[in-house]
Design a protein around this nucleic acid. Structure first.
Length: 1029
RNA sequence: GCCGAAGUGGCGGAAUGGUAGACGCAAUUGACUCAAAAUCAAUCGAUGGCAACAUCAUGGGAGUUCAACUCUCCCCUUCGGCACCA
């Protein structure tokens, strides 16, 4: 046999597979009962830079799965395509003055060449490209379906807009539960009286794709709108990343997708998906569900009642602690009440400043909060009728909740910081509760309430603090000076009394008091009662120990006084006192739940109970809010899907389905127009026809591409229903069986696709509620310097070079072997030689097998092969590619040691290798087939492969025989007190007693037993025996 | 700040309660060779010892267990996500 020549072998088989269409996927009709399996890669954006070695990692992993499933007899859908709309191609076109389509074509060609030499088993006949009019025809079609729908919050599902119109005709919008931005109520009569334009404007508030206005980042110098990641912070505010020109906010007409309608389902739908938990977590946080209450505050001016402020809070239990109300600068009430505000100039100045700030700066937490009081108006706390001031401050966001906040500085960090800065009052209404862990309250005992003072007493001379080490029942406990407040005594008197009694000091001075009250609960066992101390903490100082008098003998028996450092104090005192100490040092708001105080009839309730009861008592309602906002669905650019709408006589119409695709017109220039509009606004015929000049964003085409693969050439539908039913198995919640891609798409692509898919499911266009059943992320391959591979760092490794030098099989094995599939790891060209040597040894092994033509396999080697079958099968299924490769290496090591390896067993090994190294395994497979056909007596009956197929990749997946996994001996570890001391090789039939006897006889074990009879003997079958002394 | 993941030889990593370091790279020694490369064989966590062997060792500290890289608590470090979300 010749030497291993990877170039020759790989060229030969690539050609063979291409011409024979080895990896073609059968349509549902031609599947002949084969079960479907859908393995999908996130399709790439074909950039001009081409692939580096990091890109194929995911593709190789998914290819291994696809190949194994195909060998197991599944009809595997494993497609590839290109997501080619977007900014980079457009910029490339501007710079080089060529059509973006041309740039995309070039880049796709490069990508395809690079992918074609990696042995990936894609069915290239199903290739798609989002910029192909035959593809984006259906992107536009789906857009129209979304445009024609509204969301019924009661049914929790999208419905056709015609059904909404019918409802309006019957009873107006009263009592309709819809996800909408509409605030006006109207009756059926009113609806019928509306003009067509009014009707359309009203419907727009309900559509799932709707027109609205939003602020964009506008760069006047560049004459274009910039995305958030195209902006950086400059010395005087935000500037464009390119050129460093100032960026300001500009309100522009936009299209939106009402993704917020699906917020709840986007969270709950995650439950049954097999996705990495951190991706689920990221999506949940991004959607940001929180339950709270909406409460109305009446607003009064000097003269009269002038309106209401609705606030959203998750802490209705702190309503009695409200000391002011804050509005976002954008809140409509401010302009409505202009005439009532006495300091209007000041307020308007503040609003103007707030407007200048860009979102990024405004959102930074480290920035000091600022605000202005709206003088002349007051809000009325609905809980207690108290009048509180109204402020405007930009720490309140207009988009979240109601754009207004009830401020409770005692119980909220932001309100606390703001109140401190502007000297606004704080009122504590929730007490934290501390339960003594040593003497917790006992069930059934009566509870006695008393005030307790805790005195942190500092000796100014030494800087030390008075501490008491307790005796008797409290033996070993250290506390600060403390005691009860007696009747008729002020707390200050109580402090001085306790200081005198416990330390003998009479000249202590008050320094400060902790502003919050807390509860400590414990059991006073000597009095047989539970106690609730309402706790007050004080800092006192003494100048020196001068004038200290003796402490009574009684007190001495109870506790010993000593002086400790602040660190000692902070470490030694009980949890509750640690808290008091921390609050005395730096006051912070009380954020945790606790028991209500200063809250009238709600005093004593727990926060949880109070939230419900207080909300109810002030007529508030329980609501759920989300952080998620509606998605902007428009770009002011050329290179995107045209939005299939046009305006005629002021009314928006859809482009008829027959007329789709609405193709992108040719333009003279892809440069921004300078007005912020898309280059399409400069095309006279386009504008004349009334077509929408914005194009769709990058995520449009990628939100449904996985559906198109099921039936990529269909001209009548985005995919045939039968094909969708076949590939998107209703048994799963999601349709794609395995989806592999980078983790960076968690809150973009993976959320938008789920949204579209859920919509299509509602409308009956797809069979599963979710698109992707199983998701796995591949880790990045970093450069050997630990940085990302990038042209910028000059550390890019090109896969073409590696394939040339080492072969694609080696590259594939290396990328799978390098480490766990989902961790990011550095590329080490040094290490690639390992997998290469492995393949060469497989090659030699093949030569040996071909020469010896053995019909038997040595026992150890046979066991190794069966073990490898088990391990590789399991590991591929669980994405443990690195250990699968390792298992094959171990297997080869054993086969090399073995005296004889049968042709049949070696073929099983090749089948295991085939998903990882498809070329070399195919070559050896054929060498063996040729030999077998020359020597018919060598043909060994293989029950699994009755039909001899030409390619190893369609040959079947080997099975292991459990009986062949075990040897007749086993190694038992003997340990003494858990430390391994001796290994015993025993017959598999040995009983526990046999093993124990053998172990006791071992000299080594005896030295450790030292003649002592073990207290316990623990036997783990087939593994270990442990003697416990 | 909040949420999440991770920390094991010179390096990538393996082991999810039962022999820590599988497998691979690098390194060292030997064989082959005029020589080198390749290949093959052997060694390869640290400390002590001629050795048998012993002790220590999975970021640090405590705990649970006959037994802990693995489980629990606290702390440190690194990476990822969110960041005034009321």
């Amino acid at each position: 046999m010749n030497n291993y020549d990877h170039t020759k072998i790989e060229k030969k088989w690539q050609k063979e597979w291409d011409t024979k269409k080895t990896y073609a996927t059968a349509s549902s009709k031609k599947a002949k009962g084969k079960k479907p399996f859908y393995v999908l890669d996130m399709f790439p954006y074909p950039s001009g830079a081409g692939l580096h070695v990091g890109h194929p990692r995911g593709y190789i992993g998914s290819d291994v799965i696809a190949r194994k499933m195909r060998m197991e007899g599944y009809n595997v859908l494993h497609p590839m395509g290109y997501d080619a709309f977007g900014l980079p191609a457009e910029q490339y076109a501007i710079q080089n003055n060529i059509h973006p389509r041309k740039a995309v074509e070039q880049n796709v060609k490069t990508f395809e060449h690079q992918l074609s030499i990696l042995g990936l088993s894609y069915d290239w006949s199903r290739k798609i490209n989002t910029t192909d009019p035959e593809y984006y025809k259906w992107t536009q079609w789906i857009f129209e379906k979304i445009y024609e729908s509204w969301f019924d919050t009661e049914k929790n599902s999208a419905r056709p807009i015609a059904e909404l119109v019918a409802l309006f005709e019957k009873r107006g919008n009263v009592g309709i539960s819809a996800c909408s931005s509409n605030t006006q109520l109207f009756s059926a009569k009113e609806w019928l009286l509306m003009s067509e334009m009014e009707k359309q404007n009203t419907l727009m508030q309900y559509r799932l794709a709707y027109e609205g206005y939003s602020e964009v980042n506008w760069c006047p110098e560049l004459g274009t709108v910039l995305a958030n990641d195209e902006i950086v912070d400059g010395p005087n505010g935000p500037v464009s990343e390119r050129g460093g020109y100032p960026v300001e906010k500009k309100t522009m007409r936009q299209w939106f997708m009402r993704i917020t309608a699906y917020a709840d389902r986007l969270i709950s739908g995650l439950d049954n998906l097999d996705w990495p938990s951190h991706i689920k977590e990221i999506q949940k946080n991004w959607i940001g569900k929180s339950e709270g209450a909406e409460i109305e505050f009446k607003v009064e001016s000097v003269k009269s009642k002038v309106g209401t402020i609705k606030v959203f809070t998750t802490r209705a239990d702190t309503l009695f602690g409200v000391t002011y109300v804050v509005l976002a600068p954008e809140h409509p009430l401010i302009s409505n009440l202009k005439s009532q505000i006495s300091n209007l100039t000041e307020v308007e100045q503040y609003l103007a400043e707030a407007k200048k700030k860009d979102d990024i700066i405004r959102a930074s937490t480290d920035k000091e909060k600022s605000g202005v009081e709206l003088k002349g108006i007051r809000a009325i706390n609905p809980a207690n009728g108290e009048e509180v001031p109204v402020w405007v401050a930009d720490y309140v966001l207009p988009q979240y909740g109601t754009g207004a906040v009830m401020a409770v500085p005692a119980h909220d960090e932001r309100d606390f910081a703001f109140a401190k800065k502007y000297n606004l009052p704080m009122k504590q209404v929730v007490k934290p509760v501390f339960i003594d862990p040593i003497n917790p309250p006992r069930f059934g005992l009566s509870e006695v309430v008393r005030n307790t003072v805790y005195i942190f007493l500092k000796n100014k001379q030494t800087g030390l603090y008075a501490l008491l080490r307790w005796h008797g029942t409290l033996e070993g406990i250290t506390t600060v000076v403390m005691g009860g407040q007696e009747e008729g005594e002020t707390r200050e008197e109580a402090c001085l009394k306790e200081i005198k009694e416990e330390t003998g000091l009479v000249n202590a001075c008050f320094v400060k008091e902790m502003p919050w009250v807390s509860d400590a609960k414990y059991c006073a066992s000597h009095k047989n009662q539970n106690r609730l101390s309402i706790s007050y903490a004080y800092l006192y100082e003494i100048d020196s120990l001068d004038g200290q008098i003796l402490v009574s003998e009684e007190e001495k028996k109870l506790a010993t006084l000593y002086w400790g450092t602040a660190e000692e104090l902070a470490k030694k005192v009980p949890e509750h006192q640690k808290y008091l100490w921390a609050q005395l040092c730096v006051v912070s708001p009380v954020l945790n739940d606790g028991l209500l105080m200063n809250s009238g009839k709600f005093d004593g309730l727990s926060s949880e109970e109070a939230r419900e009861k207080i909300t109810q008592s002030v007529g508030g309602r329980i609501v759920t809010k989300f952080k998620l906002r509606d998605a902007i669905f428009a770009r002011q650019r050329y290179w995107g899907e045209p939005i299939p709408l046009f305006t005629k006589d002021g009314i928006i119409h859809e482009v008829a389905e027959k007329k789709l695709p609405l193709e992108l017109p040719n333009v003279k220039s892809y440069e921004p127009t300078g007005t912020g509009e898309s280059p399409l606004a400069g095309v006279a015929s386009w504008v004349k026809a009334g077509y929408e000049t914005n194009t769709m964003p990058g995520w449009a085409g990628s939100s449904w591409y996985f559906l198109r693969y099921a039936d990529p050439k269909n001209k009548k539908a985005f995919a045939d229903k039968n094909e969708l039913d076949y590939w998107f198995d209703k048994k799963n919640q999601g349709g794609v069986d395995v989806y592999v891609g980078g983790a960076e798409h968690s809150t973009g692509h993976l959320l938008y696709s789920r949204f579209w898919h859920q919509f299509l499911f509602d409308m009956g266009f797809v069979p599963t509620p979710e698109p992707f059943q199983m998701l796995r992320n591949q880790g990045m391959i970093l450069a050997s310097d630990g940085r990302k591979m990038s042209k910028r760092w000059g550390n890019v490794i090109n896969p073409d070079d590696i394939v040339k030098t080492y072969g694609a099989d080696t590259l594939r094995l290396y990328e799978m072997f390098i480490g766990p599939f989902d961790s990011s790891l550095p590329w080490q060209t040094d290490s690639i030689i390992g997998p290469r040597r492995f393949i060469e040894r497989v090659w030699k092994m093949g030569a040996r097998v071909l020469e010896t033509k053995s019909k038997t396999t040595s026992a150890d080697a046979e066991r190794a092969i069966h073990f490898a079958i088990k391990k590789v099968s399991e590991d591929i299924a669980s994405f443990g590619f690195n250990t699968a490769v390792s298992a094959m290496m171990i297997c080869l090591n054993e086969m090399e040691k073995g005296e004889t390896i049968s042709i049949a067993d070696f073929k099983k090994f090749l089948q295991l290798l085939a998903p990882f190294a498809p070329y070399v395994s195919e070559e050896l497979w054929h060498e063996i087939s040729n030999l077998e056909s020359r020597n018919s007596n060598l043909q060994i009956q293989d029950t699994r492969n009755e039909i001899q197929v030409s390619s190893i990749h369609l040959s079947g997946w080997p099975m292991f025989d459990p009986a062949k996994l075990v040897s007749d001996t086993m190694t038992i570890v003997v340990s003494v007190n858990g430390k391994p001391r001796e290994h015993l090789t025993v017959a598999r039939t040995a009983t526990q007693k046999d093993i124990e006897d053998m172990a006791r006889q071992s000299e080594k074990v005896q030295t450790f037993l030292q003649g002592v009879e073990p207290k316990r003997v623990i036997y783990v079958p087939e593994k270990l025996i442990n003697f416990v002394l």
